[in-house]
Nucleic acid binder design. Structure first.
Length: 591
RNA sequence: GCCAAUGUGGCUCAGGGGUAGAGCAAUUCACUCGUAAUGAAUAGGUCGUGGGUUCGAUUCCCACCAUUGGCUCCA
C-alpha cells in the first residue's frame, strides 16, 4: 500500500497517474507529442503538443480512457537504453521533445524508460508497479505552458490533475479546494466592498472603497508609528522622475519594460519622465542631501511608497498583482559592520508585523540568489560583489536560524533577497515581504560616509519592506480571515442596532461616545426588524453588534452580541469600549 | 505578452436569430418590531465595446476591452 504521508510515495503515485494521463491522450489522439509530466505539490500535470486545443469535454473523455487503463491493470516495466538507442527510439516515435530532453541529459546519465502496455515514456522514475494501483483521480484544469518554461519557445497545453489512494480523500481534497475558493479575496473583497475595478480605468488599477481604504489607513498609520518608534525616518519623495535618475540606478537598463514612461524613451532631445517602479533612487537623495559621517549610520529611511509597474496584461490578479500599489518601503544605509545587526532588526520588524496581523505562521522564507549565467543579463555587478553579498546573507540567516529555501535566479538586479512568501487560496505563492542586501547602488549614486579615520567609504544598503505591499497584505488578510478582519484593522468594528426608530437617537449618542475613544462604529438606522439587522451585520462580517432597545436606553447600556461568542449580555458603553480597546491593543485574532 | 474559459439589470444566474426573465438587493407604502430574512407594490437591462453576416443579432463571425485559471515575469 502507498503511504500517502510520505512525500516520495505520494509523488510516485501521482507521477504514475500522469503517465496514465499521457497514455490515455496518446490512445485518443496518437499525433499528440509528449513533453513533460511531473508530480507537483497537490497532484500532477502533463504537457502536450497537439494541433487542436483540449476542451473541457476532452477532459471527460480522457478521464474515461484513464479509468480503462487503470482497470486494465497494466504493469509498469523499467528498462534502460544507451544514449543513441534512446534517441533512436524516441525519434522513431516522433517524440521530438523527448529527444531534446535526452540530448540535454549529462553524458553519464542513466537513461531509463517506463513501459506500460502500448505506452512507453522516458522517465527517471520511480513508479507504481501497475496502473491498477491508482484508485482515485481527477483532471482539474487545462492551461498553456511554455516548453521548458521559456516564453520564446512554443506554448504547449498542460493538463492538471490530482490523484489519491481512495475516493474519500479525493473528495475531501476537492471540497477543501471549493471551500478555499470561497475565501478568495477577489470575490470576498468585491462583495464586502473593500475594492472594485472599472474597465475604463484600466487593468491592475483597483479602487479601494471606503472599507478597504480604512483598513489600509489603519495599517499604514500603525506601520509608520511602529517604524518611527524603532528609529526610522519617514520621507516623502516624488512619484516620478526624469530618465536621468533611472539611468544612474540601473532601472533604465534593467527595468524599462516594467516602467510607465511619459515621452519617447528613445528621443534624447526631449525630456522624458517615468513613474517610479521602486523607491530606492529617490530615497538615496535624502542621504545625499549632505555629507554623512559614520556617526550618522545606520540611517533608516522609510516611506509609505506608491509604486507603478507596467505588469503584462495577463499577470494581474485582484489586489495581489496590480500596476499601482503602496509598500512599507525602507532603505537602511549602514556601515559594513552594521549589516548583521540591521538585517536582524529588519527581519524582527517584519516578523512582528506579520505576527500582529496573523499572517506569520503561514509564511515561508526564500533566500533568493542570482544566476551568474542568466542569459537575459539581468544582474549588475561583479561575481565578487555577489559572492560577498550572498555569503553575508547566508551567514546572517544561518546565525539567526532562519529556515529557508533557495530561490535560484530570483535575486533583485542589485543583490540577493530574503523573500517572505505567502500562498493565496489557490496555492499560488507570492512575496509578502522582502529584505535585500545591496552592495552596488551606493557606489553608483556616489553615496559615501566619512569614517573614523577621515577616509570616505561606501555604505551598504538594506532594501526592505516591513509589512510589504498594503494591497497584497489586505488580500491575504481577507483570505486568511474569510472577510472578517481582526478587530484592530476591521473597517467597522461595531454596529449599533436600534430595535425600533425610537432608539435611533440613543444609538447615535453611543456611536459618538465610542468614536471619541477611537472606535469605528456605525448605526443601522433602517426601520427593519432586529433579526434582519443582525443577519445583515453577520453577512457584513461585523464582530460586535450592539443592540439598543427600551431596556438599554433606560439602563444606559447596550446588549452585546459577538460574532464569535454570541450573546455577551448587557454592558455599559464604557465596558464594551474597554473590551474592544483591549482587543485592539492585543491584536486579538479569531480564526 | 502567451494559452484557455467567461462577460445578460447592483449581486447570483436562466434563456436564446424575431430587440429579454428569476431570486436576492434597490425604491415606495404599511408594520415600530428584542437577537440570522415582515408584507405589498414599483422601478431597473440599447445582453462588455466596436465592426461584420442577415430582412432582422443579445444569440452567428471578427477585433478590442475586462474578469478568471495557468505559463512567463514580479512586491
Amino acid at each position: 500500500m502507498v503511504d500517502f504521508n510520505d512525500e516520495q510515495q505520494r509523488k510516485c503515485y501521482r507521477h504514475t497517474t500522469s503517465h496514465v494521463l499521457a497514455q490515455a491522450v496518446k490512445r485518443l489522439w496518437p499525433d499528440t507529442k509528449l513533453a513533460i509530466g511531473p508530480a507537483i505539490e497537490d497532484g500532477f500535470y502533463y504537457d502536450f503538443d497537439r494541433e487542436e486545443t483540449f476542451t473541457a469535454d476532452d477532459l471527460k473523455t480522457i478521464e474515461a480512457e484513464m479509468k480503462k487503463i487503470v482497470k486494465e491493470n497494466i504493469p509498469l516495466e523499467r528498462f534502460e537504453l544507451s544514449r543513441t538507442e534512446a534517441i533512436d527510439f524516441m525519434e522513431k516515435l516522433g517524440e521530438s521533445y523527448k529527444v531534446e530532453l535526452i540530448n540535454d541529459l549529462p553524458m553519464d546519465a542513466v537513461i531509463s524508460f517506463y513501459k506500460q502496455g502500448d505506452f512507453t515514456d522516458l522517465c527517471a522514475g520511480p513508479h507504481l508497479d501497475s496502473t491498477g494501483e491508482i484508485k482515485a483521480f481527477k483532471l482539474t484544469s487545462i492551461a498553456g505552458a511554455y516548453w521548458r518554461g521559456d516564453s520564446n519557445k512554443k506554448m504547449l497545453q498542460r493538463i492538471y490533475g490530482t490523484s489519491f489512494p481512495n475516493k474519500d480523500m479525493l473528495h475531501e481534497y476537492l471540497e477543501k479546494l471549493e471551500e478555499a475558493k470561497k475565501r478568495d479575496h477577489n470575490k470576498l473583497g468585491r462583495e464586502l466592498e473593500y475594492f472594485t475595478t472599472v474597465d475604463y480605468i484600466g487593468q491592475g488599477l483597483p479602487i479601494l472603497l471606503p472599507k478597504g481604504a480604512r483598513t489600509i489607513q489603519r495599517l499604514q498609520r500603525w506601520v509608520e508609528d511602529v517604524e518611527q518608534e524603532r528609529g526610522c525616518l519617514l520621507t516623502k519623495t516624488p512619484l516620478m522622475a526624469k530618465r536621468d535618475l533611472y539611468r544612474i540606478s540601473g532601472h533604465w537598463d534593467h527595468y524599462l519594460d516594467g516602467m510607465f514612461v511619459m515621452g519617447d524613451p528613445q528621443d534624447e532631445a526631449k525630456e522624458c519622465y517615468a513613474l517610479r517602479p521602486m523607491t530606492c533612487p529617490f530615497q538615496y537623495q535624502v542621504y545625499l542631501n549632505r555629507q554623512r559621517s559614520y556617526r550618522d549610520l545606520p540611517m533608516r529611511l522609510t516611506e509609505t511608497s506608491t509604486l507603478f509597474r507596467n505588469e503584462e496584461s495577463g499577470e494581474m490578479h485582484g489586489l495581489i498583482r496590480v500596476r499601482q500599489f503602496t509598500i512599507s518601503e525602507g532603505h537602511y544605509i549602514l556601515r559594513p559592520d552594521q549589516l548583521e545587526e540591521e538585517f536582524k532588526e529588519c527581519l524582527e520588524l517584519a516578523k512582528f508585523m506579520l505576527g500582529a496581523v496573523g499572517l506569520l505562521d503561514d509564511c515561508t522564507f526564500r533566500f533568493s540568489q542570482w544566476d551568474p549565467e542568466n542569459p537575459k543579463n539581468k544582474y549588475e555587478g561583479t561575481a565578487e560583489q555577489w559572492d560577498v553579498a550572498q555569503s553575508a546573507m547566508k551567514t546572517i540567516l544561518d546565525d539567526l536560524g532562519v529556515e529557508y529555501s533557495i530561490g535560484f535566479d530570483e535575486a533583485a538586479f542589485y543583490g540577493p533577497k530574503l523573500d517572505i512568501q505567502y500562498k493565496n487560496v489557490y496555492g499560488k505563492e507570492d512575496t509578502l515581504v522582502t529584505i535585500q542586501i545591496d552592495m552596488l547602488l551606493a557606489q553608483k549614486f556616489g553615496m559615501e560616509y566619512v569614517d573614523t579615520d577621515g577616509s570616505k567609504k561606501s555604505p551598504y544598503i538594506i532594501h526592505r519592506t516591513s509589512l510589504g505591499c498594503y494591497e497584497r497584505t489586505l488580500a491575504y488578510l481577507l483570505e486568511k480571515y474569510a472577510g472578517c478582519l481582526p478587530l484592530w484593522i476591521a473597517p467597522e468594528q461595531a454596529r449599533i442596532l436600534p430595535i425600533s426608530d425610537a432608539h435611533v437617537d440613543r444609538a447615535y449618542e453611543i456611536k459618538k461616545a465610542m468614536e471619541k475613544r477611537g472606535l469605528r462604529v456605525e448605526v443601522d438606522d433602517r426601520s427593519e426588524k432586529i433579526g434582519k439587522k443582525i443577519r445583515e451585520a453577520n453577512l457584513d462580517k461585523i464582530i460586535y453588534m450592539l443592540v439598543v432597545g427600551d431596556k438599554e436606553v433606560e439602563e444606559g447600556t447596550v446588549a452585546v452580541r459577538s460574532r464569535f461568542d454570541a450573546d455577551l449580555g448587557s454592558m455599559s458603553v464604557e465596558s464594551i469600549s474597554d473590551l474592544m480597546d483591549e482587543e485592539v491593543k492585543n491584536y486579538t485574532k479569531h480564526v
